[in-house]
């Protein structure tokens, strides 16, 4: 029990450290790199004096350390500040986009695992065969696609040519009632597909490699020697261990996906966090950028805690380590 507690304690401390690191890195980057938020929003007619006033209003005229201290203090109180350009709380800016990001990345992850795990098993159990090579090749090609090109192709083909699916956005403005959910789903298909293509390769390849390793372990040999059918050895014994690295991957990929789907969101006009970050960069909206990075770091922390938990379930050795 105490070891489990200590493990959990260390995990939380690590999570907090990650958060602090992300906050500090973003804070420093924004202030040390060139760029003047007053100019980003100001009209050219604005005098130097008015620019200075604006910077004062943003609190950017204070010493760096004071700004940093104030920011951390506010953050501890759960206050992310007010957007420079939108003049509404940062939390409301981010919360408007978060659900769509979670929906998109979550469903992409689900689909990827649902398709990736069987494919990985297939490749590992048929290794060296044409099937194996094809699965590997497919996974690698998916990883190497340039999202915008594929996105435009998908939109052209399914949206304009076949007219099966809508062109962009998260839902049609005129959708209402029960039809709204179907509408959301229809808009989700293409961006989800493009994200799935992008990440399925790493799942298939990781699972394939670890399953091959596991199948070579003594306990699998033993199981086979005991006369268990190969199928049972794969699914019952080997897969359980082989899933460990895949689980780690889920944690890593989730963090990567939540903010990293900028290109996908741009092409498919999907209102996610990544696109929001890109827009905040173009407007030099420091509070929104800082808030977004805090949120992304928090997502990573939560995701990696979840995978650790899962790791514990899958592999009891972890807890005692």
């Amino acid at each position: 029990m105490t070891t489990a507690l200590r493990f959990a304690g260390r995990r939380v401390a690590r999570g907090l450290l990650t958060l602090w690191f992300a906050v500090t890195a973003t804070f420093l980057l924004l202030r040390l790199l060139p760029g003047n938020p007053a100019l980003a929003v100001a009209n050219p007619n604005m005098t130097k004096h008015d620019q200075a006033l604006l910077l004062h209003q943003y609190g950017l005229d204070q010493p760096l350390i004071v700004q940093y201290g104030k920011y951390l203090w506010q953050l501890l109180h759960g206050n992310l500040g007010i957007s420079f350009t939108q003049q509404v709380p940062v939390s409301s800016v981010l919360l408007a986009r978060l659900p769509w990001t979670l929906l998109l990345t979550g469903s992409a992850l689900l689909v990827t695992i649902a398709i990736g795990v069987p494919l990985g098993v297939l490749a590992a159990t048929r290794r060296g065969t044409v099937v194996d090579r094809l699965v590997q090749l497919g996974g690698v090609v998916g990883q190497s696609l340039f999202v915008p090109s594929v996105g435009i192709f998908l939109l052209f083909f399914f949206g304009l040519w076949l007219r099966w699916l809508p062109i962009g956005g998260a839902y049609s403005p005129d959708a209402a009632g029960a039809g709204w959910y179907g509408n959301v789903l229809a808009h989700l298909v293409l961006p989800c597909l493009s994200l799935m293509l992008l990440q399925i390769g790493s799942y298939v390849l990781t699972l394939r490699a670890s399953l091959i390793d596991a199948l070579g372990e003594d306990y699998c040999e033993l199981a086979r020697a005991k006369g268990l059918p190969n199928r049972a050895v794969v699914w019952k014994h080997a897969l359980r261990n082989a899933l460990l690295p895949t689980t780690t991957l889920v944690g890593l990929q989730l963090g990567f996906l939540v903010g990293g789907a900028v290109l996908t969101e741009t092409i498919f006009a999907y209102p996610g966090i990544g696109r929001g970050i890109y827009e905040a960069v173009t407007q030099l909206d420091y509070p929104v950028l800082q808030g977004a990075f805090v949120l992304l770091a928090a997502t990573v922390v939560v995701a990696s805690m979840l995978t650790d938990l899962l790791y514990g379930v899958l592999d009891p050795r972890v807890r005692t380590r």
């Binding site: 659900p99 979670l102 929906l103 979550g106 469903s107 992850l109 695992i113 979840l306 899962l310």
Partner: peptide
């Protein structure tokens, strides 16, 4: 096997479920 799978699926399903709920309210 079912347990390990269920656990993995839980994280995967969890995210969109959260997304779905939030999207439903937003």
């Amino acid at each position: 096997r079912r347990r390990s799978f269920a656990a993995l699926a839980a994280t995967a399903v969890g995210a969109p479920a959260v997304g779905g709920v939030l999207a439903g309210c937003a």
